[in-house]
């Protein structure tokens, strides 16, 4: 049954920390929002908090509601894929997310450090996740290296003043 690989890793310590130690270029320099940088356990319960933190960050950045929902969706599907497929069943790896604004474009990058596995014959939710990413943002870049998978998402947005 698809979708049943969730919530089974009991007791995985929830690691979640906003990381402001590595500011992106231009952070706050032009009055724009601080970039967001997070590392979390690659498991379902932790990803809920990552998504909600992204939602708050997008809201704080003044991103329009439609774009915000689409970016949250695409980012969450990237995170969900990392949690479901990047790591062996019992190995709690981590997933990192960065988000920043460049002009009128929001970029979100999701990276895991697991091994890419070829898509199963019946892609199920995972295939849908990739499809949703492609349809909800302007650009999806997928890069796989020996050290992990990185998904880059970007979407042109309308920014409202938040001051």
């Amino acid at each position: 049954m698809i979708g049943d690989d969730t919530g089974t890793r009991q007791g995985t310590p929830l690691e979640l920390r906003p990381d402001h130690a590595t500011p992106e270029r231009g952070a706050g320099a032009d009055g724009g929002p601080e970039p967001l940088r997070m590392v979390a356990a690659a498991e379902a319960a932790a990803l809920v908090h990552v998504r909600r933190t992204l939602r708050s960050w997008l809201s704080g950045a003044g991103v329009d509601e439609d774009s915000s929902e689409c970016l949250q969706l695409a980012a969450y599907e990237a995170l969900a894929n990392a949690a479901s497929h990047a790591y062996p069943e019992d190995d709690g790896g981590s997933v990192s997310m960065r988000a920043w604004v460049d002009g009128q474009v929001v970029h979100v990058e999701v990276a895991d450090h697991g091994t890419w596995r070829p898509p199963p014959a019946d892609p199920g939710s995972r295939g849908r996740g990739l499809l949703l990413m492609e349809r909800c943002v302007d650009q999806v870049e997928l890069s796989r290296t020996a050290s992990g998978t990185r998904v880059g998402l970007s979407r042109a947005v309308t920014l409202h003043s938040t001051s």
């Binding site: 979708g3 969706l73 599907e77 995972r126």
Partner: peptide, 13 residues
């Protein structure tokens, strides 16, 4: 307020 790919799969089931 949020609906992801797993939700689509649940509805299709």
């Amino acid at each position: 307020t949020f609906f992801g790919a797993r939700g689509v799969s649940a509805l299709m089931t």
